[in-house]
Design a protein around this nucleic acid. Sequence first.
DNA 1: TCACAATATAGCACATGTGCTATAACTATT
DNA 2: AATAGTTATAGCACATGTGCTATATTGTGA
Lengths: 82, 82
Amino acid sequence: MERKLIYDPEGLKAFAKHLVSVRKKYAFSQEKLAYESGLALSQIARIETVKINPTLSTIFAIARTLKVPLSELFDFKLPAKK
Amino acid sequence: MERKLIYDPEGLKAFAKHLVSVRKKYAFSQEKLAYESGLALSQIARIETVKINPTLSTIFAIARTLKVPLSELFDFKLPAKK
DNA sequence: TCACAATATAGCACATGTGCTATAACTATT
DNA sequence: AATAGTTATAGCACATGTGCTATATTGTGA
């Protein structure tokens, strides 16, 4: 049987791009964001380079650390699916 | 070694509550949302009952199906961590 | 109460997210 | 070029998200 896994590379790419801009806006390095959030540095890099499909808890940790509302972290448009 | 896993039950609970309200606002049943998004019905239920920590791709699929911008799906306040 | 719709739970297999550690590859700045 | 700061990769073990199917529970009108 073929299991259909949901995966949204376009959306993840758009999120990654936006995250980088927000992180830099608040002058956080990946290292600082990782340290203060308790996330692994490699994890931040994997998100920003679109290597993984992170969970909500991970995103929430980032938002809490950057002290931005979720609406700001998700203030971008989902591109059309290819 | 003790691995520290990030997990944010308060945030997930707030998200779940908000998702239910948005889904009902647009008159989707769990079944309809599942069918049109390609997600499993059990998955929608697990998210809304805070049984899991969904990935961004899953959330994006929901947003696309409900035709709401991410900023609307994330228009709620992250509660303080306990 | 009965029937039906809607939601919740359960359990399995499989895919993959995450932490951790280490190392490599960039990017200034001097 | 050399150094330091930053970001990217790699690989492992472990935890868990997801699809799928089936069943149970709850909600709602007639």
